[in-house]
Design a protein around this nucleic acid. Structure first.
Lengths: 154, 154
DNA sequence: CGCTTGCTTGGAGTGCACTCCAAGGTTCTA
DNA sequence: TAGAACCTTGGAGTGCACTCCAAGCAAGCG
């Protein structure tokens, strides 16, 4: 059996919620500017991701222009999510390498995902702590505001 | 009345949970290396915070060495929390300026805190979305792992 | 006293994640 | 078939948040 999540290639994307504005598989050849519109990334950033190995080598038209597939968009979605967690780009590149290397890296990928999951949980907890501090300060300011208002009306 | 949260100075800290390893008010004069130990920041960063206006001017010993107070530590705690939210240092400097400018900036501070609160909530939501994606992939990998194991045992 | 360790300053350097540039080829619309 | 809009590359530049450096003063100890 194979550990790949999709059949044909070495990419690693498992079907999430269906994406908007996509063309059906088979006619999925997007120019870089279409991908810019779909992802919110800049063309610069897309080329840079490819250069540093965060993307697989993107398919080209007969004249050398990039043609992205639905699979590439899925990968970019995952990268976007991981970026939100604060994961360094270098770590994402590492993950991309593992995917390219094939099935035998599957345990390492699994561990990496679990570690990332723990990081995200910790991050959410930190933010909840910060939220508590903010709420305390906000209610202080609200009280101070009410006190000022009642003083003014006296 | 005054909108200051503490009596004597223009700092802006409302009593959170009591802090560990602090000296009682009145004997609160910490060297920079003590503050390093208490906050986890580097001395470089502490001096830099002061230079860019993120800290009030720190009290000095008769020979010009910094002596931090409990109030300074409270402020650093708040800065630490805000930093966790991803708030740019420039925005924190802006908040510090508002505090220094006095009571008449209180509405603006209030708004800034509320905006930050919304940002934190949005950030937590993003992270929850990422968590869902990670969990989906993790359970995929776990299933693949079980499949491999049962194949091996056949 | 000498020694070590700690603190001071302004300014320069670092690492990350983009972001932009110049010069030229490609694709689309009129 | 002309013009506008889009795409290509390697390499250089940017902004942020630190991070470090050199040169020198300060403090505690035997």
């Amino acid at each position: 059996m194979t550990v790949m999540e999709t059949t044909a290639t070495g990419t690693d994307t498992c079907a999430g919620p269906p994406q908007q504005n996509r063309r059906p598989d088979g006619q999925d050849r997007y120019t870089i500017s279409e991908v810019v519109a779909l992802t919110g990334l800049t063309a610069h950033t897309l080329r840079w991701y490819e250069r540093i190995g965060l993307m697989p080598h993107i398919d080209r038209s007969h004249t050398g222009q990039r043609r992205y597939t639905n699979r590439d968009l899925d990968w970019l979605d995952l990268v976007g999510k991981l970026r939100l967690t604060g994961m360094p780009v270098a770590d994402m590149v590492r993950y991309a390498e593992l995917v390219r290397e094939g099935d035998h890296t599957y345990v390492e990928r699994f561990e990496l995902l679990k570690t990332t999951r723990e990081d995200v949980l910790a991050r959410i907890d930190e933010l909840r702590g910060t939220l508590a501090v903010l709420d305390r300060k906000i209610s202080f300011y609200a009280d101070a505001g009410r006190a000022l208002a009642s003083e003014r009306s006296r």
